[in-house]
Design a protein around this nucleic acid. Structure first.
Length: 283
DNA sequence: TACGCGTGGCT
DNA sequence: TAGCCAAGCGT
């Protein structure tokens, strides 16, 4: 089944820029952080510009964090930009500017969690690691558990399942990681999966059971309208788009609820996403 | 474990 | 249209 998935990937895998020969571990790391909760199609442009501007961790570490936030643009979850900058600083200071190759070292870096550490180990260095993202969790939920979807959070059961599926050798494990993720991204998608195109459909318990929708864990949707997240997004977008800086009053007036705007501006300042210089706000 | 954290495309 | 969903992380 793993070989079938690998063969499918060889034919249908996307030609993403960070998959091309010659991409550095830093390039892989940046692509993974940018891809956290963000569709790949939106990452290609910002990643290309980012790597041209900051081709090594040292290059980014020498910059102000605000430059990273600005370059992040509208990728979303802008604290990732701040953490990626902090990650570059940590690599410069603790690893002499060389991206470490082990999970234990990577997991200690800012913005690098279980998934991203494993992804860098696997994609950048070709070593064995359980790369468990939402795509792989969904594929395993259907093929092995026989339910329609995985839950929104990674559970211990997910990790145990992924560990059982992980091939023994470095090369096979790395190939399984990239191909199973790609399968989840292109074929075994959350809504309306393309089972007729799936290379492992013959082994899928969910398909064999005629795709039951019962019994799968519930994914809770995120509220958006009127939330602090939306408010922060409005204020940050204002500051991001102003070279000269934004008056505090102007920023607060961009949101209908004054109290909430004040709270959110405060949190943006606390996070370090925005800086205050007198009455002016800048990145 | 559960929650807060952006943004935009798709159905 | 209003949700659903997307290569998660930190607390």
């Amino acid at each position: 089944m793993i070989a079938a998935c690998s063969a499918w990937y060889g034919e249908h895998g996307r030609d993403l820029p960070w998959r091309r020969a010659g991409t550095t571990p830093w390039g892989v790391l940046v692509s993974e952080v940018m891809s956290q909760q963000t569709p790949m199609s939106r990452v290609v442009g910002p990643w290309t510009a980012w790597m041209e501007r900051w081709p090594t961790p040292d290059d980014l570490a020498e910059e102000e964090p605000g430059a990273a936030v600005a370059a992040w643009g509208r990728l979303g979850y802008p604290r990732r930009a701040l953490r990626l900058h902090a990650c570059a600083v940590a690599i410069a200071e603790r690893f002499d500017g060389v991206v470490p190759s082990t999970y234990a070292e990577l997991i200690e870096l800012p913005g690098i969690g279980d998934y991203t550490a494993a992804a860098v180990v696997s994609f950048a260095f070709g070593h064995r690691a359980a790369v468990l993202d939402t795509n792989v969790r969904r594929v395993l939920a259907r093929v092995e558990t026989g339910v329609a979807n995985c839950g929104s959070a990674t559970t211990r059961a997910d990790r145990e399942l992924a560990a059982r599926w992980l091939p023994a050798s470095d090369a096979d494990a790395a190939r399984w990681a990239v191909s199973s993720m790609e399968l989840g991204a292109l074929v075994c998608v959350a809504r309306s999966p393309l089972c007729e195109q799936c290379p492992i459909s013959g082994h899928c318990r969910w398909l064999a059971a005629e795709k039951p929708t019962e019994g799968a864990p519930v994914r809770r949707g995120q509220a958006w309208k009127g939330t602090d997240r939306q408010c922060r997004g409005v204020i940050l977008d204002l500051v991001r788009n102003s070279m000269a800086g934004v008056e505090v009053e102007v920023a607060l007036d961009a949101w209908p609820k004054r109290h909430q705007a004040e709270k959110c501006l405060g949190s943006l300042l606390d996070d370090g996403l925005i800086h205050r210089d007198g009455e002016l706000l800048r990145l």
